[in-house]
């Protein structure tokens, strides 16, 4: 009996997909659909719009503002839309069923998830760059139009803090996306966490002393508040870390575990 020797798959000439390439592809996927592009355009456009309105109001009312006020204003569109982008970066793979293709090309799902996370970080940095640029522009215009002296304050610290805040927002969105693998659910849960929950938390803190003390440790969005004001104290960092463990790390870990195990359909 002759047994034909099987030719083994010759893989000597092919290297693993470079991580950096995965990241570039994931970045591209964020922007190459209509939904993604609109989201990115909306972020930039709304930020610009908010600044224009703010500029108009402060000049018309002759108000005294500094750089941090402009940064605070644009935190509204950025803070709302960047996390949505974070959610969609994971869930669109599942709602559009592209995960099948993605994981067929790179079976190590953790690498894909890591690449997605990095791409989300890159977007945060990009958003910060655009934000600082627009904010600085608004500040200069303000100086010209009002004739007031420009106050930059501790712009460096603030810029870093905003970056931390936006990264936390995007990754939290990412975590809920990974946890629920569904755009609508991920977005709703993110908004419940960021808009709805703070209200009962605030009421509870007002009514009960013990809850008031507990709140910064468990209310992640509350703990992020100081980031927008300036440098954080040691205990404020501790609040951020502890509440972040509950609202960010935990869902992220469960979400990644879920992606890793899920049957991709």
């Amino acid at each position: 009996m002759t047994v034909l020797a099987e030719t083994p798959l010759n893989v000597t000439g092919t290297r693993k997909i470079a991580f950096e390439r995965l990241v570039r592809v994931e970045l591209r996927k964020l922007a190459d659909t209509r939904a993604g592009r609109w989201l990115l355009i909306s972020v930039a456009a709304l930020t610009a719009l908010v600044l224009v309105i703010q500029l108009w109001v402060v000049v018309a009312q002759d108000l005294q503002v500094d750089f941090s006020d402009f940064l605070l204003a644009m935190n509204t569109p950025m803070g709302i839309l960047l996390p949505v982008l974070g959610v969609m970066s994971v869930t669109s793979e599942w709602s559009q069923r592209t995960a099948m293709v993605t994981f067929a090309l790179e079976p190590s799902r953790l690498r894909v998830v890591a690449a997605k996370l990095v791409s989300v970080l890159v977007v945060s940095v990009g958003a910060l760059a655009v934000g600082l640029l627009l904010g600085a522009l608004a500040q200069l215009l303000y100086g010209v139009l009002s004739g007031n002296e420009l106050v930059w304050g501790s712009a460096g610290t603030l810029a870093f803090n905003y970056l931390v805040s936006w990264v936390l927002g995007m990754v939290t969105g990412f975590a809920y996306g990974a946890l629920l693998l569904n755009s609508a659910a991920g977005i709703v849960v993110y908004f419940v966490y960021s808009f709805v929950l703070p209200i009962p938390f605030a009421i509870g803190a007002q009514l009960m002393d013990w809850f008031d003390h507990l709140r910064p440790w468990i209310d992640f969005s509350f703990a992020q508040g100081p980031l927008l004001q300036g440098s954080l104290t040691g205990s404020e960092w501790a609040h951020l870390a502890t509440s972040g463990l509950i609202w960010l790390v935990l869902p992220l870990v469960v979400g990644i575990w879920r992606i890793n195990r899920a049957e991709v359909k």
């Binding site: 839309l81 949505v84 959610v87 755009s183 609508a184 977005i187 709703v188 908004f191």
Partner: peptide
């Protein structure tokens, strides 16, 4: 006619 956009 789109879920995420409407929710946001």
């Amino acid at each position: 006619l789109n879920t995420p956009a409407s929710i946001v």
